[in-house]
Computed example of a mutant assay.
Amino acid sequence: MTDRSPQSLAGALPGVLLAAAAALTGLLRRDKALHPVGHRGTGRLTVTHPAPALDVEALTRAGTRPCRTRWSRSMGLPRGWPDIEGLALRLEGAGPDGGDADLLFASTGGRRWSRYLMTLRGPGRFGRLTTLVPARAGGRAVTFRLSPQSEPRDGLPPTTYALDLALGTGDWQPVGHIDVTWVEADTTDRFDPITHPLTGLEQYAFVTALREPAYVAARAVARARPTHGERPHA
């Protein structure tokens, strides 16, 4: 059934505009419109500070689980230019019915208000990333943050990130950390928190209406005009 709530309708128009921009960019580039170049990684999430009140199954108890990651330059601007840093996190078995679940992070500011604003970073620069827009868990708005805990090497992203969460515009609270082994090669995996939700985490209708059309358009263009040859490293 189509969601016709006011929140969904409010996100529909900007969502369609973003989708059109993504499709045009992909057609001109002959590649993925969003996050075209990146590095893949494998690792694990370790939860050290469970948050059972959120009722997000993957965070209710201490422990570890496998994860896959992809770091990327979001807009695919020419090498040497600043770009928005992106990191996709896939938690294995953390979705409904035991499926995988995705979280998407982007480089943002460090203050209470700027955690919702994307920030450009220069080549070889890595920093804090947040999920940018809140989702709902346990009846509260929640945002997640990744903060590098190790130095990058050989042009690859840091191998350890602290994972924190914030309720509303509140202070960041520790959750755990992820440890990643990166390689220069990229991956064709598609990460999407709308179609691969984290069990217990619900996207607001406005966010779904805003983001999903752009993802659909980008995937359609990539299928229609796949890249030939090797992509440059990020």
Rank of each mutant, 00 (worst) to 15 (best):
A21P: 04
W172S: 06
R140E: 15
E151L: 04
E92L: 13
P193L: 05
R70D: 07
Q149I: 00
R153P: 02
M1L: 05
W71P: 04
T42P: 03
P152V: 04
L89A: 10
A33C: 11
T25D: 14
L9R: 14
D186M: 02
V221D: 12
P123L: 01
H49R: 03
Q7V: 00
D186W: 08
D31W: 02
G122E: 10
A58E: 07
V221A: 08
G93V: 00
L28G: 12
L59Q: 07
A23Y: 06
D97S: 12
L18V: 00
A22C: 10
A19I: 01
R153E: 14
A23S: 12
T48P: 13
G11S: 12
D164E: 15
H177V: 00
T199C: 10
G11R: 01
R90Q: 12
V37Q: 14
F206N: 03
G155C: 11
A209V: 01
D179M: 02
L28M: 06
G176H: 05
L129G: 06
L132Q: 10
L198E: 08
G99E: 14
T108M: 08
S147Y: 03
T46L: 14
G38V: 01
H233G: 15
R211Q: 11
S72K: 00
P148H: 09
L54Y: 11
G11Y: 07
G139K: 05
S114W: 10
W71K: 00
G176Q: 08
L45Y: 08
P50D: 13
S114M: 04
R211F: 09
Y215V: 02
L54W: 13
I194F: 15
T227A: 12
T60C: 14
T188K: 06
R231A: 11
L129W: 06
A19W: 08
A21K: 07
P6C: 11
L104M: 13
W113G: 02
T131Q: 11
C67R: 02
V216S: 12
A234Y: 09
D186T: 07
